[in-house]
Design a protein around this nucleic acid. Structure first.
Length: 335
DNA sequence: AATCCGGGGAG
DNA sequence: CTCCCAGGATT
């Protein structure tokens, strides 16, 4: 069994030689840049995040710029990234930091975790990477590395297992170079200890890896127990005005596509439908959605109230709006 | 078609 | 506590 010191030192040595050192958020490891990148990386792969991160930090170079921006603009820059609650919480937290904390991020785990959208792992990442505070992370990469290293034979998402993994994660976290160690563990999981086809022959801790010793690397970590996925249907109404603009409405702040702009929806086809466009299939982790886009002549099936919506110019959208992914695709296809 | 992912919020 | 929610990418 590797001591915690040997574990972290081995991983750090590997990181110096083979880790990623040129990611856009590594050029300026400020709490702000680190925070924005960690939130974006929560559900999303590095390669997807990079262009969003560059555009986002270019538009909002610091926490004050983000705090004073309209939420619609923040959601606009998030369009396509998914999990829009992340963008809403990012905006909320920016306002707390800008208005209540004098522009400075907190430097303890407790205070950091109290901010909207920042949980234990993200707090640990920001503290260790941008401030050198000894704190641990347990993201998907680290969970996979530890589940294999200790040959944990249960789904890592189960609360009991998760608690054990946190104990291992904290045990191995070093007292020096903690930011590099955080990055190193993420890199190890992302580049070598991949979900499929792990590159065990290149792994610095292979000789102490339980899963490798037992020939279980392809089985661990155990998959989440699967659930039945229902199919839901909806009809999205497309209504043009005279200059050929489309009527959009803002969705409620909570729930699916919260705060984003979308087409009015209905359960049944109204009489005023001119024609239906091909069905759009959209898949979520917990249900499948079939959208029937319907062109309507007159908006008898919904209210055109200026306060609730807006007319969207397909050729030159004048506003910065967040759009639900299938709506964005649909609008583009209407041009 | 199946799998993955951090955190918030409701029960 | 435990469950449920949420979107796109990858395989």
């Amino acid at each position: 069994m590797l001591s915690s010191e040997a574990f972290s030192q081995t991983v750090l040595n590997w990181f110096d030689e083979h880790g990623r050192h040129d990611l856009p958020w590594q050029t300026n490891k400020s709490p702000y840049f680190t925070w924005v990148s960690e939130i974006m990386l929560q559900q999303t792969q590095v390669s997807t995040v990079i262009p969003y991160f560059l555009h986002f930090t270019d538009t909002f170079p610091d926490v004050h710029a983000l705090a004073s921006a309209p939420l619609d603009q923040v959601l606009h820059l998030w369009t396509g990234l998914g999990y829009y609650a992340r963008a809403r919480n990012l905006h909320k937290t920016a306002q707390i930091i800008s208005h209540e904390l004098g522009g400075a991020f907190p430097n303890t785990l407790e205070e950091m975790e109290a901010l909207p959208g920042i949980g234990r792992s993200t707090a640990g990442a920001i503290l260790s990477i941008s401030m050198g505070v000894r704190a641990s992370i347990l993201d998907g990469n680290v969970k996979r590395v530890l589940a294999r290293f200790y040959a944990i034979d249960e789904w890592p998402g189960a609360p009991k297992v998760q608690a054990a993994l946190w104990t291992y994660a904290e045990h191995n976290t070093p007292t020096h170079r903690v930011g590099d160690y955080t990055q190193a563990m993420m890199d190890l999981g992302a580049t070598l200890c991949r979900r499929t086809k792990p590159a065990c022959l290149l792994c610095p801790i292979q000789s102490h890896c339980q899963a490798y010793a037992l020939g279980l690397t392809h089985v661990l970590p155990k998959a989440r127990p699967k659930k039945h996925k229902p199919l839901k249907t909806t009809i999205m109404l497309i209504h043009f005005n005279e200059p050929r603009e489309v009527w959009l409405e803002k969705r409620p702040a909570k729930g699916i596509w919260g705060g984003l702009w979308s087409l009015p929806e209905t359960e049944e086809l109204p009489d005023t439908v001119l024609k239906c466009l091909p069905v759009i299939k959209h898949s979520f982790s917990h249900y499948d959605l079939e959208i029937t886009p319907a062109l309507v002549k007159k908006p008898e099936c919904f209210q055109v109230e200026e306060a609730k919506g807006l007319w969207y110019n397909l050729d030159q959208p004048q506003q910065s709006l967040g759009l639900a992914a299938p709506v964005k695709k649909l609008l583009a296809s209407l041009k």
